[in-house]
């Protein structure tokens, strides 16, 4: 019955891809804060597990046969609420979370301490007024934080045993960095988007990360957030979301945009717009990008999915009768969408 109720609505003429309901994970705890996936190895078997977070705890879910799931472990956190899960690519038995009130105040690792004793632990990575954080390849984490007088941007690494290793300082721009993305296809290149709508490019192969260039996105779409970056044919392509964009006649109501930058000149051009489905009222609230797939929760309570290369909306999950959608995340591949509701329910869809 649940599958039938939550069947995605395909838009007219866009029937190449679709979302198929797979499973529902229901935790007894309240409001879902975030959801993610992590590779987890225990008792000699390695599986892609789901991690769900509410304000006071984080749960690890293990797949069973026939699309069923079992809650394996719950980390109870302290008084500071969980704000987000920070996915770490290519890691196993390690979850990173950000905690805070209005903004991130600390970052913690949650990990399996010993597979033999099946014991779990958590450790503090960083504290401060943290504005943005991203998990990088090779068990690294980049973050931006502000003190009263300056901004600090840095990378910390984690050893196999869960200890934080020496950090790396990145040259900060004047304005606050609000999001990061690794540049696919260019080792040691990292981009960030700032509070005044610039894209900052770093090289992180030295002890001090060089700030290579800063390029302006343009004033039409303020407060752009970078989700993904890749290099192709001498250009830097950045996927941006626009939580504060206004509707226009030419572009509709844009949720995501692919922009091509020439890093040598700083000039840019918009390549593709992914707008809200025609006739769909509301705005972009929050979303996630994996490969060429983007998903976003809209103010209407629906989740929309786009093919970023085509600029087409390919599927729309209407608000569930029991509650609006609150979270949309891709699993480690774009083949699976994790959709969270405000009451803590998480639904898995095959895409």
């Amino acid at each position: 019955d649940a599958a039938e109720e939550l069947a995605p609505v395909l838009l007219d003429g866009l029937r190449e891809e679709s979302l198929q309901f797979v499973s529902k994970l229901k935790d007894s705890s309240s409001c879902a804060v975030d959801v993610s996936t992590v590779w987890w190895e225990a008792a000699g078997s390695r599986a892609l597990c789901v991690v769900t977070a509410c304000e006071s705890s984080v749960c690890l879910w293990q797949p069973l046969a026939s699309d069923h799931w079992r809650k394996v472990y719950t980390w109870q956190l302290g008084e500071i609420p969980v704000i987000q899960i920070v996915p770490l690519p290519d890691t196993c038995n390690l979850v990173c979370i950000a905690l805070g009130d209005l903004e991130i105040g600390e970052i913690r690792w949650l990990l399996l301490y010993s597979s033999e004793s099946d014991s779990f632990k958590q450790s503090l990575v960083k504290t401060g007024n943290i504005k943005a954080v991203l998990g990088l390849q090779d068990r690294r984490l980049v973050s931006s934080s502000r003190t009263a007088h300056e901004q600090q941007v840095g990378i910390v690494s984690l050893s196999e045993t869960g200890r934080s290793k020496d950090g790396q300082t990145l040259m900060p721009p004047e304005e606050t960095v609000l999001a990061f993305a690794e540049v696919e296809g260019v080792r040691d290149a990292l981009v960030g988007t700032t509070a005044v709508n610039s894209v900052v490019l770093w090289s992180v192969n030295l002890k001090t990360g060089q700030l290579l260039t800063k390029m302006h996105v343009g004033y039409s779409y303020p407060a752009s957030i970078c989700h993904r970056a890749y290099s192709d044919s001498g250009l830097l392509f950045v996927v941006l979301s626009h939580p504060h964009a206004k509707e226009s006649e030419s572009c509709g109501n844009p949720a995501f945009r692919v922009v091509a930058f020439n890093p040598r000149t700083g000039r840019s051009t918009g390549v593709m717009f992914s707008s809200l489905p025609p006739g769909h009222a509301g705005r972009y609230l929050e979303g996630d990008v994996k490969d060429a797939c983007a998903a976003a929760v809209l103010t209407s309570g629906a989740i929309a999915v786009w093919d970023l290369l085509l600029g087409h909306c390919t599927a729309l999950l209407p608000p569930d009768p029991e509650g609006a959608w609150a979270l949309a995340r891709w699993a480690t591949t774009s083949a699976c969408l994790l959709a969270g509701q405000q009451d803590g329910t998480v639904c898995l869809y095959r895409y």
Binding site: A189, Q210, T213, S231, G234, L235, P263, R264, V271
Partner: peptide, 23 residues
């Protein structure tokens, strides 16, 4: 995207910018 819009394009932009940037 054309060079007239974006200026001269270099396939080695990352190496070139890294060499030019202050350490």
């Amino acid at each position: 995207c054309s060079e007239s819009d974006l200026g001269p394009i270099s396939l080695n932009w990352f190496e070139e910018l890294s060499a030019e940037a202050p350490p």
